[in-house]
Amino acid sequence: MSLSPVTIIWAGVFCLLGIGLYGLLAVRNLIKVIVALQILVKMAMLSLVAASYSVDKLALGQSLAVMVMVADTIVAVIGLALAVQVQQRLGTLDISELSRLRK
């Protein structure tokens, strides 16, 4: 059985999904959480392109991916800015410490 490029891309999508989810579930460092989130967004972008290729609407998928890039940059910037603030005010990046806000 030969692997077509699309199949390989889909395999990549699922790998990224697994890595991203694992990161969100297991990691406690806020910076690493943001990295995991970024991996998930990359997964979404990749799957957009792959899906658009499968239905023969490549231009649509690519333009959507560019839009995701823009939104994603903003998310990353705000997330990292938050991380800096958390570090400065609470002196830690451990997200389980952040749940103190609840009390």
Binding site: L21, L24, L25, A26, V27, R28, V33, I95, S96, L98, S99, L101, R102
Partner: peptide, 14 residues
């Protein structure tokens, strides 16, 4: 169920 733990919330989402 509202623990405020991010990991726990992600678990719920997944």
């Amino acid at each position: 169920t509202q623990t405020g733990q991010l990991n726990w919330n992600i678990f719920g989402l997944v």
